Computed example of a mutant assay.
Amino acid sequence: MLPWLAHGHISPFLELAKKLTTRNFHVYFCSTPINLGLIKQKLSEKHSLSIQFVELHFPSLPELPPHYHTTNGLPPHLMSTLKKALAMASPNFSTILKKLKPDLVIYDFVPPWAPSLALSHNIPAVEFLPVSAAMTSFSMQVTNNTSVEFLFPEICLRDYEVSQFTRLIDSSAKDTGDGALECFERSEIILIKTFREIEAKCIDYLSVLVGKKIVPVGPLVHTDPIQEYEKNEIIEWLNNKEPSSAVFVSFGSEYFLPKNEVQEMADGLELSRVNFIWVVRFPQGGKDSLQMALTKGFFKGLEIEEWLWRDGLPK
């Protein structure tokens, strides 16, 4: 397994690895030492018998010390450098494949060179998308410049947003040395982190767009027991709400909303009058600014559950 260097990719890859061990797979989980060190505690003694961590070492770059061989805490201006370092590490990955001789490589959409490198060793490769079918199919629909309307017309981009989105994809392709979406062409089937009960239409739509069989592998959430306060408060709070009446808002484990975007999201939630759970992440020292913003009038008259704001933040 070779996931991209972000926790939001590594975590579902690890959960998929755990599922595969129940089918008698032995998994070599490949990433940088800094990332593997962060996920060791998520591996139980039982799983450690069948999942083996393999370190992928990067070449030495003065501007990218080893603690930056991950997107966790990476300064934004070093993202292209990180992708460059990953590409430069492809010979090391080739050496790993030659030594371990796995029966299969499961790769992420970054790095795009992983499937061709695996095939050069006569090892089949399968892509795993640790994102939703809705987002993937929508991205494909936008970047392919198709005139076909998306499955859900309410989800759309304005003209200026399409150009911004396309530039983002093009920039990513430039950083990786290949188009990230081109890796679809190198896998006969595509695994995806979702299930048909929620995303059947998007799974089928994506299958048509890429001309591949899409295999959902489930939500792949961390399976440790839920903490007591979550059992007693969050789950009970949700159980007391009507079906389809609560919104979960999160922008990933490594994105910090600037103040103006916090304001935008707060205004939208207040106007919607829906029940919500909003996960807000802070950079180091950032909690004070959000606390100040909240006390200055966010959510005017809106009842906010105490458990939603932990670490001393106000109701």
Rank of each mutant, 00 (worst) to 15 (best):
residue 162 V to M: 02
residue 33 P to I: 12
residue 100 L to R: 10
residue 110 V to H: 06
residue 236 E to W: 11
residue 145 N to M: 09
residue 299 F to I: 02
residue 87 A to K: 15
residue 193 K to R: 15
residue 110 V to D: 04
residue 297 G to I: 09
residue 29 F to C: 04
residue 23 R to G: 04
residue 42 K to M: 03
residue 144 N to V: 02
residue 178 D to G: 08
residue 226 I to A: 06
residue 174 K to D: 12
residue 232 N to H: 10
residue 15 E to M: 06
residue 195 F to P: 11
residue 173 A to Q: 09
residue 313 L to D: 00
residue 210 V to R: 05
residue 117 L to P: 00
residue 265 M to R: 07
residue 110 V to S: 09
residue 32 T to F: 03
residue 168 L to H: 00
residue 162 V to K: 14
residue 117 L to Q: 01
residue 245 S to C: 05
residue 264 E to N: 12
residue 189 I to M: 07
residue 89 A to T: 14
residue 280 V to Q: 12
residue 80 S to E: 15
residue 165 F to V: 06
residue 40 K to W: 13
residue 199 E to H: 15
residue 300 K to Y: 11
residue 272 S to C: 07
residue 33 P to M: 04
residue 55 E to L: 06
residue 174 K to E: 13
residue 54 V to N: 05
residue 102 P to V: 01
residue 311 D to I: 00
residue 277 I to E: 08
residue 219 P to Q: 03
residue 307 W to K: 04
residue 90 S to T: 15
residue 230 E to W: 09
residue 133 A to K: 07
residue 36 L to S: 08
residue 157 L to P: 07
residue 125 A to E: 02
residue 1 M to G: 11
residue 229 Y to Q: 12
residue 64 L to W: 02
residue 204 D to Y: 10
residue 144 N to L: 11
residue 281 R to D: 03
residue 28 Y to N: 13
residue 69 H to I: 07
residue 303 E to P: 11
residue 205 Y to N: 09
residue 249 V to Q: 04
residue 186 R to F: 05
residue 35 N to G: 01
residue 198 I to M: 15
residue 114 A to H: 08
residue 224 D to T: 14
residue 115 P to D: 01
residue 209 L to K: 06
residue 73 G to F: 07
residue 56 L to H: 11
residue 84 K to D: 14
residue 81 T to I: 11
residue 259 K to P: 04
residue 61 L to V: 15
residue 308 L to K: 04
residue 294 L to M: 15
residue 100 L to E: 11
residue 96 I to V: 09
residue 253 S to K: 04
residue 129 L to D: 03
residue 156 C to P: 05
residue 272 S to P: 06
residue 12 P to A: 02
residue 92 N to H: 14
residue 279 V to A: 12
residue 294 L to S: 07
residue 196 R to D: 14
residue 151 L to V: 08
residue 272 S to G: 05
residue 197 E to C: 09
residue 208 V to C: 04
residue 84 K to E: 15
residue 28 Y to G: 04
residue 192 I to V: 13
residue 101 K to T: 00
residue 237 W to C: 01
residue 258 P to E: 02
residue 38 L to A: 15
residue 184 F to T: 07
residue 286 G to R: 06
residue 59 P to S: 02
residue 267 D to F: 11
residue 25 F to N: 12
residue 150 F to Q: 00
residue 79 M to V: 10
residue 66 P to M: 01
residue 59 P to V: 00
residue 148 V to C: 07
residue 85 A to D: 13
residue 312 G to D: 03
residue 313 L to E: 02
residue 70 T to R: 06
residue 5 L to F: 12
residue 149 E to T: 00
residue 111 P to E: 01
residue 247 V to R: 02
residue 149 E to Q: 10
residue 41 Q to S: 14
residue 151 L to T: 05
residue 151 L to I: 13
residue 154 E to H: 12
residue 26 H to W: 00
residue 90 S to M: 15
residue 177 G to N: 08
residue 214 I to N: 01
residue 138 F to E: 03
residue 306 E to R: 11
residue 100 L to C: 02
residue 266 A to T: 04
residue 89 A to Q: 13
residue 26 H to Q: 07
residue 40 K to P: 00
residue 306 E to L: 10
residue 63 E to G: 09
residue 42 K to F: 06
residue 200 A to L: 14
residue 108 D to Q: 06
residue 161 E to T: 12
residue 212 K to D: 02
residue 255 Y to T: 01
residue 206 L to G: 02
residue 61 L to C: 11
residue 280 V to P: 08
residue 89 A to F: 14
residue 22 T to V: 12
residue 69 H to Q: 10
residue 75 P to V: 08
residue 143 T to M: 05
residue 313 L to P: 02
